[in-house]
Nucleic acid binder design. Structure first.
Lengths: 231, 231
DNA sequence: CGCTCTGTGTCACACGGGTGTCATATTGCG
DNA sequence: CGCAATATGACACCCGTGTGACACAGAGCG
């Protein structure tokens, strides 16, 4: 397959070089940007499959940049791995809560970096692009981030959307709450497992008027499953 | 909750004991092997959910063993964590390249070990492989945790499901109540042996409408057996 | 700057079903 | 027949899940 393109946004040249070296050795294609402005240009020029984003940047910080991208429809589901020297737990939580897919703290080994990059890419692969999923009349259009059934649209929050997207990409399969947190919320997030229940309920509630709530099934003691077959 | 089974391949007894202690305290089920040959036997006897493999072993080294497993279709995606005293980055890369899922260097703390074990297990599917077992029309799909016969699905509680899964993975063989408690309930659990009888009955009752209850046979004085041949 | 609105995570509580244990009936074997 | 092992039904407890409410943080807007 064509090698994945990765954008490295990092102001310190030595670290940037180290990352580039590690990535290129593993056969990734790499673009670099020292600051937010350069990063915007780089993205416009060639859309990367993943962004390695330094938390601390001169001028517009990595956090702000990430939030900016998350708001824009075009870049909303661009996989982002935050790179930071901070170890503060609060920062970690904040970073992940704004939608980063993973989090790497300096110093890190190149093998760790590669592993995380691979993991995130692997997860975002199915349906990472503007794929539109359709299951039994339920249509999820990734390009417009919209879910419709027939001609009426289903109103979903961002998390519910990602949850449904995950389910529709992986139907007929049981996932534990932990796995769902990993793949829908992002790796290394610390949120209560029971939070999943709440979002499951919200998703069910949103799907109920259209009769699709039965597809989300509880597997007691294990987790949840998205299935076309009734219980 | 059936605990995960972990095989520890390590020639130095003190280290092996330390690892075993740390794992068992965290409620993992542990098997040990001091060398490659013993490891092969242990895997044949009971397939582990994960292997902790020492790099340096007398005779056939851990690296060779890992490569051997990776070649065999049956063990190709068995999660492996390499344990080693080496810190050379080249070795690390070699280890990961031959398919190890993670890498621990001695000396390591038991908490680090546990963390890595958990992380690797989390990535692999719940219940090990997503194999689907089929015996004479009775289908058990591990991915969706569903049991079907024809197009109707069989309603099972969690314990009955695990029990049936155990039986279908090991048919034509008698197991004592004690063995079944170990493998289905998980070791370190204290429940009455008679409890097995009750769950056997529940499983039979669930399978009866489909005519599969005869497969679960009582072996008086020994235990139970799952067999396609009638008594 | 302050307001509202929306989305999110966490908690408390309710409830239903799963689970283990016992008492009793039944079966198998010497 | 007598004893031991197993089958079965009943039952109480408790864990896992559903659900509503709430606090909090950002975004948008005047």
């Amino acid at each position: 397959m064509a090698s994945k393109h990765i954008l490295v946004v990092e102001d310190e040249a030595p670290i940037r070089d180290m990352i580039r070296f590690a990535l290129e050795r593993t056969d990734f294609s790499v673009a670099e940007a020292p600051d937010a402005q350069a990063a915007r240009l780089a993205i416009a020029e060639r859309r990367p499959d993943l962004v390695l984003l330094d938390w601390m940047l001169p001028g517009v910080s990595g956090v702000e940049l990430a939030r900016e991208w998350r708001r824009d429809e075009l870049t909303a589901n661009l996989p982002i791995i935050l790179v930071t020297a901070r170890v503060d737990e609060n920062d970690r939580v904040r970073g992940l809560n704004l939608g980063a897919d993973d989090y790497v703290t300096k110093p890190f080994s190149s093998s760790e970096l590669i592993a995380r990059v691979r993991a995130v890419l692997r997860r975002s692969l199915p349906g990472g692009e503007d794929e539109t999923l359709e299951l039994d009349g339920l249509i999820l259009d990734a390009a417009s981030q919209r879910v419709t059934v027939g001609d009426t649209s289903v109103k979903l929050g961002p998390t519910e959307y990602r949850l449904l997207r995950f389910f529709m990409s992986n139907p007929e399969r049981v996932y534990s709450r932990e796995q769902m947190l990993d793949r829908v919320w992002g790796q290394n997030v610390y949120v209560e497992e029971r939070t999943v229940d709440v979002h499951i309920r919200r998703l069910r509630k949103a799907l109920a008027p259209h009769g699709f709530d039965g597809f989300i099934q509880t597997v007691r003691g294990s987790g949840y499953r998205f299935s076309l077959k009734p219980v």
